[in-house]
Design a protein around this nucleic acid. Structure first.
Length: 253
DNA sequence: AAAAAGCACAACCGCCTAGAC
DNA sequence: TGTCTAGGCGGTTGTGCTTTT
């Protein structure tokens, strides 16, 4: 049994929104707030699908949107978040006030991908291109329901990893907890191996290359592990100190 | 100047999930 | 407990603009 269509498609407009449609949508939401998107088009006098109205509002009409070019800081934050979260655009967007998931997704595909490729970094794995894939041992962060998590591992990967194929006992569930102190890691790095990937977090402050798990990179600017705060390097991994990202609230399943 | 290629981004499509019943 | 639906998400496509040939 197939799904019923989200709206009556025979009598809906498609394609670019007109100024008049935008005005109607804005006026309606100002008067009634965001509510039932399914009934909104009819109530607002729009010949549009509810989904289309929602998308238009969220991505372009919301008053709190920050339009315009991405800053270098936003670029780097997106890269860092993508290295951690993969193509979870909504999660990434949640860390960038005024930016939408669609906007970030487009920006990634048109700008950042190329930028990383120019740096010699695979945009999907965030590892240097041509670097042999390291052998990955499983570290499971989950405590229960192992079989279910294995099923998830087959289908969940957002970065092109097929967990079941390459790592039968792979657990892709990621939970990020307050940093665990480990004295033997160079540069105070901690490598979270999950989903066939390395996620690097830190008890201190990391340079960009280190945050991507590129240890001992020539581009490393971690001051040989002597840095102890972002103020000394100007680097605030994932915005932990600036408050952009509360890593304790992150959870990827 | 015109055509082709490349780029940027708005919008759509289909799937997934949570919640209501 | 199972079914249905609205909302949400990520992938993909369409289209207009810009740059190159």
């Amino acid at each position: 049994m197939g799904r019923s269509p989200c709206c009556e498609k025979a009598h809906t407009n498609k394609g670019a929104w007109t100024k008049e449609e935008d005005d109607r949508l804005i006026a309606y939401i100002r008067a009634h707030g965001e509510g039932c998107w399914r009934s909104l088009p009819k109530a607002a006098g729009l010949l549009r699908c509810g989904k289309s109205c929602r998308l238009r509002w969220i991505n372009y009409l919301r008053p709190d949107l920050k339009r315009g070019n991405f800053t270098e800081e936003e670029d780097e934050l997106i890269i860092k978040l993508h290295s951690l979260l993969g193509n979870k655009w909504s999660l990434i967007a949640a860390r960038l006030p005024g930016r939408t998931d669609n906007e970030i997704k487009n920006y990634w595909n048109t700008h950042i991908r190329r930028k990383l490729l120019n740096r010699g970094i695979d945009p999907m794995t965030h590892r240097p291109i041509n670097e042999p894939q390291p052998e990955v041992k499983t570290i499971s962060f989950a405590t229960a329901s192992v079989e279910k998590e294995e099923e998830k591992a087959v289908v969940t990967s957002s970065n092109g990893f097929s967990g079941k194929e390459r790592c039968p006992d792979l657990n892709l569930e990621l939970r990020i907890s307050p940093p665990y102190q480990h004295q033997n890691q160079p540069h105070d790095h901690q490598i979270l191996k999950t989903g066939g990937r390395n996620f690097t977090t830190s008890t201190t402050t990391l340079c960009f290359s280190c945050s991507l798990g590129i240890l001992n990179s020539e581009e490393c600017s971690c001051s040989n592990g002597t840095s102890s705060s972002s103020s000394s390097t100007g680097y605030d991994f994932l915005g932990l100190e600036s408050g952009v990202l509360d890593y304790r609230s992150l959870e990827m399943k």
